[in-house]
Design a protein around this nucleic acid. Sequence first.
RNA 1: GCGUUUGUAGCUCAGUGGAUAGAGCGUCUGCCUCCGGAGCAGAAGGUCGCAAGUUCGAUCCUUGCCAAGCGCACCA
Length: 588
Amino acid sequence: MSAQKILQSAVEAALSDFDVSNVAPETLQVVAASNPQFGDYQWNGALPLAKALKQKPRDIATRVLERLDVSAISESPEIAGPGFLNFRLKTSWLESALDHARLDDRLGVEKAEHPERFVVDFSSPNVAKPMHVGHIRSTIIGAAIVRMLRFQGHEVVSDNHIGDWGTAFGKIIVGWKSELDEANLAADPIGEMERLYQLINERGKADSSVEDAARLETAKLQAGDEENLAIWRQVRDLSQQQFDQIYARLDVSFDETLGESFYNPRLPGLVDELIERGLARESDGAIAVFSDGQGDPKDDPFLISRDGEWTDFPALIRKSDGAALYATTDLATLEHRIQTWHPDEIVYVTDARQAGHFRQVFAAFRRWMPEEKVRLSHVAFGTILGEDKTPLKTREGGTVKLVALLDEAQERALAVVREKSPDLNEEAAQNIARVVGVSAVKYADLSQNRASDYVFSWDKMLALSGNSAVYLLYAFARVQSIFRRGRERGVDVSVDAPRLVEPAEIELGKCLLRFNEALTASLRDYRLNTMTDYVYELAGAFSAFFRDCPVLTAPDEVRASRLALCDLTARTLQQALLLLGIHTLDQM
RNA sequence: GCGUUUGUAGCUCAGUGGAUAGAGCGUCUGCCUCCGGAGCAGAAGGUCGCAAGUUCGAUCCUUGCCAAGCGCACCA
């Protein structure tokens, strides 16, 4: 059990004589100390409790302390300041907890007490288009969320809701039938499909008959025209091959790939059902969901203030031409996921600009299926900006393609590897550059608070120093090299229970035991940068240990203990990085 | 205009209803007879956008203002 939990239950037991009914439970939690000089954990509950009971905080703290038995885990707790209770973990407890962790495949991380089922919706590229920088955050953050939830013991369905339907297909089909360049399609399918779309799109702007033709092809496709369906299938398959190549490079996979087309048959009936239920009605020829007039207009996603008046801001679910919209598809998708998987929570990893859309979809869903208890979470993230603080573009002003971005990351990583490790053979250097490049891209993204926009910087991403993927991979490689060097020199590298003597050993040991807390904190509100912060801290704690505590030259007993710390550090780094989707290297 | 996100060190960013607000980069100073210096240690650098309020305590919560990004029905 984690130190926090042990201390927490001890405090709760000591509080049994107090009337805590007027105190918010979260203020009675044992928390990590705000400053190492106060120890490892602190309990601040005496202050709110004193307030509720109209007593002095230090008196409360004293009485709690009298009833508190934490002698197994903590040195004698101290009352400090206005009534804080400070705990310092006993070295003996740290040693036994570390011994337990190192003998455990899960490194001492407990599984969730109540495993739940999650559906995580992320990545969602569009067919017939190259994946670009706009897909990278969703893909990386989503994949990390899936891994972390699974590691906690939850059941997760990852679902790639690809954009494989819609009016754009009319234009592609028109182009496909009249302008298809077979040779180019074979060489660069995505490029050719994109070219066809852009070509017809341009012609349509000048010539309305081209627009009409595209609409006709869209209608035929939707009506089940065999020729158009065959083209559509081919476009989709070729696109999926591209997605799969990129996902392989990123080491991302999905349990399901149910695109928009999958839900298409359900849409007309869904709209009719919402109309019949009185949730949607006609407006200017379209069908839309309006406010139900419940609650504060400010919190109502179907109202907007115009010229000082609250006016309707409905969610459209059917256009005046009869076609469905993405709110419609999202509602059908919700229905399908609930009926198929009965999840406790559905997580949408999309950019922050869609927040308004999801507010409407979630609100409409609650009115449609009021009995459903599923939690709906929009994990929103900011935009990736260029050095000029505007959304990242190529020098020519186009979107940055994901393939090009990963290629460049790899090339730049290769230059670094060649510079720092000129002795490596070509194959090893390439392999290291591949891992370092992808890791740098992932880490730069994950280490940022997802809510904020961030400025994309190659220099920062592949920085040789500081908080970057390179630093972490280097730390891991250094741990591994201790074992490798030991074997080369014929040193006994067997491990034994860790003993903590030097300050650097104690700090490293404490840091290793915080992995569980980092995981929990990271999944709360899906702020994954909490986990990157932890990994960075752990790498730093190891670096200090590496400097202060020689391993291979230490006496047998000390060496076995320090090797145990090295082993646990390596495995914890590896596991934490893997949760983030980053693979380690034994040598770099 | 309304909604929403953001505003913290020179730059890029973390962070929390609690005690002295942190890191990286940059600047300055140290550390290689020692397991990987792609490292470590230290210094300098802050009215936490502004102002009220709630609170024993606010950078964090509330409200107002200022500034920026984003969104605002027949694209997704």
